[in-house]
């Protein structure tokens, strides 16, 4: 019942730790982009050291600029460089490695842990998602094991981890709910929400990745993105927005 200790000789080079879906070991052979706060331990090898450099102050700035095309997320990522083993964990989420072969895959930003320099990162048109392009490996986490489904499919937004090769989804609203919405007085509060009326609709050929639980992470970028958009609003729109925010705050206080 005691755990056999691991060391750099017995650690996997690129795999989950033995009998542990919640921790993953990567042997560094080149630069690795990592989300901050996901590294739980590392073994520098050969008396050297592993450097974790912020994207804003890295010695590889041109490589970073060409591989990380997202100002919004740049503060939350670092580049790891050096020789040794790095162990990652993510709040008790399952961690899996994926290979991309000249492909494209879009994944929820909070679930993306790391990717190698063979891949390029861009922001998806869907808020809160990031797109990876190229050939290489990346690590993503999920609440429970990942389920792969093929379009056409409609999925719950909270269960969505990502999608590959198919067009970006459209938002779909349940037809019955839409009927009710259109029939009701404009702006009236609807008392008929089942929590499932908003769905993402996938079409075309590809793969959709789902997680088995709808537990959501608080994504600080949603707020940051909204902040960015507020700057482009006029006085009337801002006043309107203030009213909406106040009404929402009132609801939370009750």
């Amino acid at each position: 019942m005691s755990t056999q200790p691991l060391d750099p000789q017995t650690l996997p080079d690129h795999d989950n730790l033995p009998d542990n879906a919640y921790a993953y070991c990567v042997r560094l052979t080149g630069p690795l982009f990592m989300q901050t706060g996901r590294m739980i331990a590392y073994y520098p090898s050969g008396g050297g050291t592993i450097r974790f450099e912020p994207l804003t102050a890295t010695s590889m700035s041109s490589m970073v600029a060409s591989h990380f095309s997202s100002p919004l997320y740049s503060r939350d990522w670092v580049v790891a460089n050096g020789q040794g083993h790095v162990i990652l964990g993510d709040r008790g989420y399952d961690i899996n490695s994926y290979d991309l072969d000249d492909g494209n895959l879009t994944v929820r930003a909070a679930n993306l842990l790391a990717f190698d320099a063979g891949l390029e990162l861009k922001e998806s048109i869907i808020p809160g998602f990031l797109t990876l392009l190229g050939t290489g490996k990346f690590l993503a986490s999920s609440s429970g094991p990942v389920i792969f489904v093929e379009p056409p499919v409609r999925v719950d937004p909270e269960a969505l981890v990502g999608w590959a090769d198919c067009p970006a989804p459209a938002q779909h609203f349940d037809a019955g709910w839409m009927g009710h919405f259109l029939g009701a007085a404009r702006g009236a509060v609807l008392g008929t929400r089942s929590g499932e009326e908003r769905q993402y609709d996938f079409t075309g050929a590809g793969t959709v990745l789902l997680q088995s639980s709808e537990r959501m992470l608080e994504d600080p970028h949603v707020v940051r993105r909204l902040e960015g958009e507020v700057r482009s609003l006029g006085v009337n729109q801002l006043t309107h927005l203030q009213g909406v925010v106040n009404a929402q705050l009132q609801q939370h206080r009750q």
């Binding site: 755990t3 200790p5 919640y22 921790a23 964990g89």
Partner: peptide, 17 residues
């Protein structure tokens, strides 16, 4: 968050956590 992880430390393999 998951099973415990045991990591051996030797003079040749220092560890950072």
């Amino acid at each position: 968050g998951g099973p415990p992880i045991a990591l051996r430390v030797s003079p040749a393999t220092p560890l950072v956590v």
